[in-house]
Simulated scan of single mutants.
Amino acid sequence: MPNKPVSSAKFNEVVNSPKRSSRRVRRVILSLLAVILLGVIIFLLVPSPIEPTKWITPAGPSFKEPGPWQQNDKLSSPQLVTDAPKSPEFITFDKEGKLYTGDSDGKIYKVGFDADGNPQEAQVFADTKGTPNGLKFDANGNLIVTDVKRGLLSINPSGSIEVLADQVDGKPIYLANELDIAQDGSIYFSDTSNYGRVTFKEMAENKPHGRLLKYDPMTKQTTVLLEGLYFANGVALSADEDFVLVAESYHYQLTRYWLKGSKKGTTDIFAKNLAGFPDNITRDEQGHFWVGIFTTRISFVDQMHRSPWLAGTMAKVPELLLSGASAPAKHGLVAELSPQGELVESWHDPEGSLYGVTTAVNHNGYLYIGTAPGGSEGVHRLLLPK
Rank of each mutant, 00 (worst) to 15 (best):
L135H: 05
S8K: 15
S338W: 05
D216P: 00
T358V: 04
L237A: 04
L30V: 11
F294W: 08
Y257F: 14
G112P: 02
N118A: 11
M1E: 15
H348C: 09
A126W: 01
L321E: 09
I50V: 15
D147Y: 01
Q70N: 08
Q221P: 05
G228F: 08
L135P: 05
I281V: 03
K10F: 15
G185M: 04
G67D: 04
A232K: 10
F277C: 04
H288Y: 14
D116G: 15
Y100V: 00
T295P: 00
L44I: 10
G112Q: 00
A311G: 10
P18G: 12
Y100N: 00
L37I: 13
A335N: 01
H288C: 12
I293T: 01
I298T: 12
G102H: 02
G324Q: 01
V361P: 07
N280D: 10
H348R: 07
V224P: 03
L212E: 11
D116N: 13
S21Y: 14
I281F: 02
D184A: 02
G67M: 01
K4H: 15
V15E: 12
Q120Y: 06
M1N: 14
E178A: 13
K272V: 05
H288P: 03
L383R: 15
L274T: 07
L320M: 08
L226N: 06
L333T: 02
P132Q: 03
P88F: 09
A176E: 00
W347T: 11
E65T: 06
L321F: 10
G276Q: 03
G341A: 03
K10Q: 15
E178I: 05
D138S: 07
W69Q: 08
L382S: 14
M314G: 12
I36D: 06
N194S: 07
P61E: 14
A360E: 03
G341E: 10
A139F: 01
R297V: 09
L337Y: 11
F243H: 14
M304Y: 06
E285F: 14
M1S: 15
R306E: 08
G130K: 04
R256I: 01
K95Y: 09
G287F: 00
F277V: 04
G341L: 02
A372I: 10
I281D: 00
R381D: 00
V163I: 07
D73S: 15
D147R: 07
Q340A: 11
G332Y: 12
E202G: 03
H305M: 11
Y109H: 07
F137M: 09
S62V: 05
N12P: 07
T222A: 07
I42T: 13
S104R: 05
K107Y: 11
W258V: 08
K110E: 12
L333N: 05
P61F: 08
A139L: 07
R381T: 03
E51S: 13
Q70K: 07
S48C: 06
V81P: 14
G102I: 00
E13V: 02
R211H: 08
K330T: 08
V198G: 13
A236G: 05
E227I: 05
Y250R: 10
W347D: 11
N72G: 13
S193T: 14
H380Q: 11
Y215H: 11
K136L: 04
V244R: 08
H305P: 12
A232I: 04
G97Q: 07
K110A: 02
R26M: 13
